[in-house]
Design a protein around this nucleic acid. Structure first.
Lengths: 120, 120
DNA sequence: AGTACTGTACTAATGACATGATACAATAAT
DNA sequence: ATTATTGTATCATGTCATTAGTACAGTACT
C-alpha cells in the first residue's frame, strides 16, 4: 500500500518512489527487484500500472529486465551517483525559483530553512 | 500562453500559478481579475478549464465572483499573508524530506543550496 | 517431463481531464 | 432601449490513466 496523490499519474509516482529508493541505496546497484506482480501487490496497484512504471525506468537505463529471471537495478554505480546529484540539484533549483516567485529573498529563505530544520 | 507540465491537470497548474501571483502581490487584495475568457486566452486554455480553476480558488476563499461585474481577489490581506507563509513552509518541508530520503544530511543540503544560490 | 515463475502483450471498461460549441441571465456601458 | 460583457451551465467528443482479465513464451526448479 502507498499514499498516492490523486492529481498525478500513479505510474509517475511509482517511478519517483523507486528512483528515490535506488539513489538512496535501498536498492543497491545490480540487485534484483521483486516481480512485477509482487511489487504491484506491495503498492496496491494493478500489475499493468507497475509494469508501465518499470518499463519507463528501463527506458532511462535505471533498470534492466531479463526476460524470465527477473528485473535488476543497473550495475552502473556512477550512473546512480550522477542521478542522485542531478535530482538533488533539480529539487533545490525548483524550490529556489518557487520561493523567489513568492517574494522570498535569499536571507529570508535561509532563515526559514534553518527554523524548519530545527523542528525536525 | 504558458508552459504546462503534461503530467498534471492543467486546472491544477493554473490554480498554483494564480495562487502564486496572489501571494507574491502581483494581484493585490481586492483587485479585479480579467474575465474568464480573457484569462483563458492569455494562458492558451479552454474557458471551461479556466472556469474550473477559478471556481476551485473560490471554494478556497481566495477569490470571489460577482455574477456580472467580474471576479476579484479576496480583500482579506491576512488570509493572503497566511497562505504565503503556509505555502513556503510546505515547500521547504517537502524538500527537506525528499533530500533526507536521498541521504542528504543537513550540512550537505545547506552547502548544496549555497552553491546553487550563487549560480542564480 | 512437468510445474511454477518471469516479463510481456492484448482487449475492454471506466473515469477524469480537456476542448469545442452553445446558450442563458444579469448587469454595465452606450 | 439596446448592446456588450460578465459568470455560469450544458452537451458532445477525444485522449489518457487505471483497472480487470486473460494469454503467451521463455527459463529455473523439481
Amino acid at each position: 500500500m502507498y499514499d498516492f496523490d490523486s492529481n498525478r499519474p500513479i505510474y509517475i509516482q511509482l517511478m519517483d518512489h523507486i528512483k528515490m529508493q535506488i539513489v538512496a541505496g535501498a536498492f543497491s546497484a545490480g540487485s534484483k527487484l521483486a516481480s512485477v506482480r509482487d511489487l504491484a501487490s506491495d503498492f496496491g496497484v494493478n500489475p499493468n500500472t507497475m509494469q508501465r512504471a518499470l518499463s519507463e525506468l528501463e527506458r532511462e537505463d535505471l533498470l534492466f529486465a531479463q526476460r524470465t529471471s527477473g528485473r535488476f537495478v543497473t550495475a552502473d554505480q556512477q550512473k546512480i551517483d550522477g542521478l542522485r546529484k542531478q535530482l538533488a540539484t533539480e529539487y533545490v533549483q525548483q524550490l529556489l525559483e518557487t520561493m523567489k516567485r513568492m517574494g522570498y529573498g535569499k536571507k529570508d529563505l535561509l532563515s526559514l530553512i534553518q527554523s524548519i530544520m530545527e523542528e525536525m
